[in-house]
Design a binder for these strands. Structure first.
Lengths: 197, 197
DNA sequence: CTCGTTATTGACCAAATGGTCATTAATTGG
DNA sequence: CCAATTAATGACCATTTGGTCAATAACGAG
């Protein structure tokens, strides 16, 4: 049984998916046209439809790609012990601010954007978005528990839920905020809470 | 000087604006077509363009309408002393959960949706979104300060920023969450923090 | 070399998009 | 009653939309 019969794909599927994801991430579902996708990937319509089947499928694949490339990376840096638990939490909550005022990147979080993208919402999208959130929440539990090993599990988990929800809010509000001070205020208040749990 | 010369408007401008806002709120900018707006308002294209000038202008007017009708109402219930300060804060943070699981309303918050709507973003939209957030933050200060009159102002304001950001996160995540328990966890953790400030 | 299989291309499609405008209608001031 | 002003209508427009498909090309198996 051979790996592939017939003419082989001429493009790197992961590279192409990364380009498509970038568009949906920044612009959302409806605002991203096939013409955008063709231009960004250098592929013709027919190739895209042969590979993915529909625009919706491209969107869903983009969400999966985001989970693999971005969410999983976030999980790693929250759970790895290269830094102190407190630093990991601080960096996690600072990332939304850092992206905008340190990197001029206002794309926000694709999960959060997709959450509010009614036109693109269906069972598949919802499942993927929710799965991403759950992964992050689970990862947040780790450093919180390390900081407060004596706290009951329910309290740790509630705190993780608080920080995840706050993170979403930071990602959303950072897209329009004119100055970072209000967002830093929210972050600092949250970190104080974790410190004094 | 008379109030109006020429043929008068045949529609109630506020009613029509409410319909248009409902569409942009639920569907976002790109996913809402003129055809949707015509159907919802019962007006013809020409009338809409005579009244507003462009689709973008309709969107901006919708944001203004939201500020007047929804944000200002939220400010009122946060600052009025019909309820205890703690109840007001609790109800504010519960509203996102209540909307979905008590009213099957998954529209979220128009400000939050608009924050992530890249296609609709321009200076005007950004200004209005930010102004709405600021109004809510300012209103949140009131019950927090009532609960903790001895806390320094900066601490009170930071807490307001925390709660507002959390509110945004709740509004966003509630649109896709399958069960409310995680969101209730975040809310309850936040309320505990306010209690123990 | 041939045949089956799969990929690429770009022309083509119906439908929908945001937007305009000439015509007609309703109103007020004189 | 007439003129000026503003509103409503819907036909019309160029452009773009997501999507299809027949023709062609590149590969592996036999």
């Amino acid at each position: 049984m051979s790996k592939s019969v017939g003419r082989p794909r001429e493009f790197d599927e992961d590279e192409v998916l990364a380009e498509i994801m970038a568009l949906f991430w920044k612009q959302g579902y409806e605002a991203t046209g096939l013409s955008d996708i063709m231009k960004a990937t250098g592929l013709q319509k027919g190739s895209l439809y042969k590979a993915y089947g529909s625009k919706r499928a491209m969107y869903v694949c983009s969400l999966e790609h985001y989970e693999r490339e971005v969410v999983d990376a976030g999980v790693m840096s929250l759970t790895s012990n290269a830094e102190s638990p407190r630093d990991r939490l601080y960096n996690f909550l600072s990332a939304p601010i850092q992206a905008v005022w340190g990197g001029n990147d206002r794309r926000g979080c694709f999960l959060c954007n997709a959450s509010t993208d009614d036109a693109a919402m269906d069972q598949d999208a919802r499942r993927l978005i929710d799965r991403g959130y759950k992964k992050l929440e689970k990862a947040l539990v780790v450093p919180i528990a390390e900081l407060h090993p004596d706290q009951p599990e329910t309290r740790v988990r509630q705190t993780a839920q608080l920080l995840l929800t706050l993170y979403s809010g930071l990602r959303v509000m950072s897209r329009t905020a004119k100055d970072k001070s209000r967002l830093e205020g929210a972050r600092d208040a949250a970190i104080q809470i974790v410190d004094r749990l």
